[in-house]
Structures are given as C-alpha cells and as structure tokens.
C-alpha cells in the first residue's frame, strides 16, 4: 500500500535509528497527513516522479489491500444477481426447465466421458506453470550477476524446451 505525498525535491530522509516520522512535519503547507515513513526508506521501495514521492505505508500491507479488494469484489456480481432475483418474474414450467439443447429432447446422461487428450494438454501446462514460477525470480535477479547467471536460466528454459520437443516428436501434441 502506498501513500501519496507532496514533498520537496531535495528531501533527505534520515534513516539512522528506525524512528518513525509523522508526515505533517515534512509537508510544506503543514496540513496534517496520516501516514508514516518507514525507516528502511530506500530507492527500492519508493519512486521519485518529479516532486512526488510514493512511500510504503506500514499499516495495511499489500496483501491486506488485496484482501479488502477481493472482499468487495465478491459483492460486485452478487448485488446485480440478487437484484435480478428480486425483480424478475419466477414462473418455472416443465418445458422451460428442460435442458436446453436447441429444442431437441436430451438423451442419455449429460456428464459424458471425454477423450484423454485434454488431460495431456493440462499435464504439459502443469510442467510449464511450475517452470514459470522458478523463472520469474531468476528473470528479476539475473541482471545483478555475471553472465553465467543468465546462461543458467537459459539452460533451465532449454531443458524444458527439450521436453516440449520430445512430446512433440512423440505426436502427443497432435489433436486426435
């Protein structure tokens, strides 16, 4: 969670002993601000954009905001649906309730078995998904190491690529 402040361009934030600064001391117009500056203030968690400074708040964590967001997001679809349930008529009928298959009466159970090919695609996807979770931290950090770090990641990627080539050669990626 970030708090937006307007502070001077040449601001130096002391980061000696972890004291917490109230923001209105820093503001030129003395309007009280709610928020604090964490002591581990660094270019890493703030971005200077002109004379604005975005600074991390410590009261509600990033995931706390995501939690609030998802809690609210549950209501976005529920409210219209409930409105629809309340306002719409409700007159079920035998014909109306039938399974809709273009007017033809449905035959047999609806839950039919499907071909196993779907399963194989999901399996290959699973491998690539796990691979991606490892590759993202590497992509973030590889620039801070010598060239061999980049080569290691590429090796990782190409090993999975070899797996893909094997699956391809075996003909398992062909839809049938």
């Amino acid at each position: 969670m970030f708090h937006v402040l307007r502070i001077p361009r040449d601001l130096k934030v002391p980061r000696d002993d972890g004291r917490i600064f109230l923001l209105y001391r820093l503001s030129p117009d003395r309007i009280p601000r709610c928020g604090v500056i964490p002591f581990d203030f660094s270019p890493h968690n703030c971005y200077h954009t002109g004379h604005f400074l975005l600074e991390k708040s410590i009261m509600i964590s990033d995931w706390g905001f995501i939690g609030i967001f998802f809690f609210l997001a549950i209501f976005f679809p529920i409210v219209p649906i409930l409105t629809g349930v309340l306002l719409g008529p409700h007159k079920p009928g035998a014909v109306k309730n039938e399974t809709y298959e273009c007017g033809i009466r449905t035959r047999g159970p609806a839950r039919i078995q499907f071909r196993a090919s779907y399963y194989l695609y999901a399996l290959v996807f699973l491998i690539f998904d796990i691979e991606a979770v490892f590759l993202f931290p590497w992509a973030v950090a590889h620039g801070q190491f010598p060239l061999y770090a980049a080569v290691e990641g590429v090796l990782f990627l190409f090993l999975i690529g070899a797996g893909l080539a094997y699956v391809w050669r075996k003909g398992s990626l062909s839809w049938r």
Binding site: L54, W63, F65, I66, A73
Partner: peptide
C-alpha cells in the same frame, strides 16, 4: 461470481498513473 472476481481482481495492481493505483505488489 468467480468469473467476475477473476477479472475485477486484476485491476488491483494495474497502475493507472504514476500516483494512482490500488497496490504495487
């Protein structure tokens, strides 16, 4: 409900401007 949440949830992290976004994960 899930279909809507799965899309609206994306907007929690999208930066709309330098100083306007939900959260910077």
């Amino acid at each position: 409900v899930l279909a809507v949440i799965g899309v609206v949830g994306l907007w929690a992290v999208i930066p709309l401007a330098a100083t306007a976004y939900g959260v910077d994960l």
